[in-house]
């Protein structure tokens, strides 16, 4: 029997099914009623419903075979703005049949395009405005050039509340026959915060790993097998002074898992903030992480920069055990 990932299985199909972002949903519904649409810019953190909202809007606008009227591109996967332009050209060259005179082009991670590429994109948007509306999606509006922003209606999505995330998890757990303890929900939320995609994926993995009886321990065990857990282990090894082992783990994350240094750094940051260490050390480490983060943008080698950070953690661990002042 074929079964989807739960994230897809329970993705709202219509705007009516969306449980959050009420204001945004209300405004989008008006577009559907008017059967007209400006160019859209959706910004907000991961897993809060940006893609879901535009897919649901397309569904409501075009009906069940809405897939024929939209094209999804992910800027970070396309090879350059020229490829994007060719695809747009091909897609937007004809107007659709039916009462809606335009198609919708969804461009996810649009904020990963360089400014130059965005300027080229803006020209493309203009050229095909008659037959095509663009929905650009990204994390930060500041990373979208002003000329594009001014041509779009901007929608700012906010992280989901703990209540919303848990409500949604409960609904899925019930339908999938999964028993989840309250601590299990807490652990999932603690890890995913307002990122619903992450929360649902974690629930599914935890359900699979436990014969569908999820508690906090199961969640932590699963986390130990996915990247955040391994990053945690790397930090613990460093604090214990096991630099060589910590570096091996770092290499395994970079090489075996193929993770991006920026992602590892982000996880290190959130782990450090949760560590039980003196606050002033957290601030110092945050400064050190910020420095590494900047250096990564400057073309330095990620592994060396991250290793230097691990060595600082070794020093912090040393101080915690009373071995002198760290990081001064």
């Amino acid at each position: 029997m074929s079964s989807e990932m739960w994230v897809e299985k329970y993705r709202p199909k219509s705007l009516d099914e969306m449980i959050n972002q009420e204001e945004i949903v209300a405004r989008l519904k008006r577009f559907v009623e008017e059967r007209n649409l400006p160019h859209l810019l959706f910004v907000g953190p991961a897993g809060v419903g940006k893609t879901t909202a535009i897919l649901a809007l397309a569904h409501d606008l075009y009906g069940p075979d809405y897939r024929n009227y939209i094209m999804e591109l992910n800027a970070s996967d396309e090879r350059g703005i020229n490829v994007i332009r060719e695809k747009v050209k091909f897609f937007a060259r004809t107007a659709p049949i039916g009462d809606v005179p335009f198609k919708i082009l969804i461009m996810d991670e649009a904020d990963s395009l360089t400014a130059d590429a965005q300027h080229a994109l803006r020209r493309t948007m203009e050229r095909y405005t008659r037959t095509c509306r663009f929905c650009l999606i990204g994390n930060y509006s500041e990373r979208i050039i002003e000329p594009i922003q001014s041509r779009c209606s901007i929608f700012r999505f906010s992280p989901l509340s703990e209540e919303d995330v848990k409500r949604c998890l409960r609904m899925i757990a019930e339908k999938e026959g999964v028993e989840v303890s309250p601590e299990g929900y807490d652990a999932i939320y603690e890890e995913s915060r307002g990122d619903l995609r992450k929360a649902i994926n974690l629930l599914q993995a935890a359900a699979a790993a436990s014969g569908r009886r999820v508690d906090a321990d199961v969640v932590y065990a699963v986390l130990g097998r996915v990247s955040p857990g391994r990053v945690r282990e790397m930090i613990q090894l460093s604090l214990k002074g096991e630099f060589i082992e910590a570096r091996e783990l770092l290499r395994s994350l970079l090489i075996d898992e193929g993770m991006a240094a920026e992602d590892i750094l982000r996880m290190i940051y959130s782990e450090i903030m949760r560590l039980d260490i003196p606050e002033r050390l957290k601030v110092r480490l945050s400064d050190a992480i910020g420095e590494v983060d900047y250096r990564l943008t400057q073309g330095s080698r990620p592994e060396i920069q991250l290793s230097a950070l691990l060595a600082k953690l070794v020093l912090v661990g040393e101080e915690m055990r009373g071995g002198g002042a760290a990081l001064d």
């Binding site: 992450k198 994926n201 359900a207 790993a209 990247s227």
Partner: peptide, 24 residues
Amino acid sequence: RMHISTSRAVRDVIPILKVIFQSD
């Protein structure tokens, strides 16, 4: 299938899939 970039797939979903494929 999940409307995300390939790099996000590598980072967020493939580890989850591994857990599922190795236990259920």
